[in-house]
């Protein structure tokens, strides 16, 4: 079923599943993924995005900051935002 998922969805699932071990290796770094593949870790988001765009093109890479809590892959919805805005 994963073949039907986008690379970004695959990367999100991979990051959540392996967050603990990724944080041990790359704590605080911006981690560049393409699907389940770890490409590299960078000090800045800008560097990671530049490489991601160059190597994989729009929508084919993901960048997550290696932090141990769910703020690394989730967002709290602002109360000012209506649910049907999503």
């Amino acid at each position: 079923m994963e073949r039907k998922l986008s690379k970004q969805k695959i990367a999100l699932n991979y990051f959540i599943k392996h967050q603990k071990e990724l944080c041990k290796r790359f704590f605080g770094k911006e981690l560049l993924l393409s699907g389940r593949k770890i490409i590299d870790a960078f000090d800045s988001l800008g560097e990671a995005v530049e490489i991601g765009e160059q190597k994989f093109g729009a929508g084919n890479y993901s960048v997550y900051k290696c932090l141990p809590d769910d703020s690394a892959y989730s967002i709290n919805i602002p109360y000012s935002l209506r649910l049907d805005n999503v």
Binding site: A11, L45, A58, V63, D70, S74, I75, L83, V86
Partner: peptide, 17 residues
């Protein structure tokens, strides 16, 4: 640039954005 998908938690569950 679209850099990742993340979970958005809200009262009715989780959406991917």
């Amino acid at each position: 640039p679209n850099i990742a998908e993340v979970q958005m938690k809200h009262a009715n569950g989780i959406a991917i954005v």
